[in-house]
């Protein structure tokens, strides 16, 4: 456990994943973009390309 004391020093770099999770506006970007692209844009594209009945 003494190892933890040394690894919790202030100069230890923050891991990338923790930096992502600590950035609310990056998360906001992810949370808007993913559903907009995969759900809305993809879905709307499918609807507008439905052919007219022959």
């Amino acid at each position: 456990m003494s190892q933890n004391e040394t690894t919790d020093a202030d100069d230890e770099p923050i891991p990338v994943m923790q930096q992502i999770l600590d950035n609310p506006f990056l998360l906001l970007f992810i949370g808007i973009t993913v559903p907009t692209v995969f759900y809305i844009v993809w879905g709307v594209m499918e609807i507008v390309t439905i052919p007219v009945a022959k």
């Binding site: 992502i20 999770l21 998360l27 992810i30 949370g31 993913v34 559903p35 995969f38 759900y39």
Partner: peptide, 10 residues
């Protein structure tokens, strides 16, 4: 929670 942010809304 990150998985929620990215995927829950789908």
């Amino acid at each position: 929670f990150l998985l929620y942010i990215a995927f829950l809304q789908l």
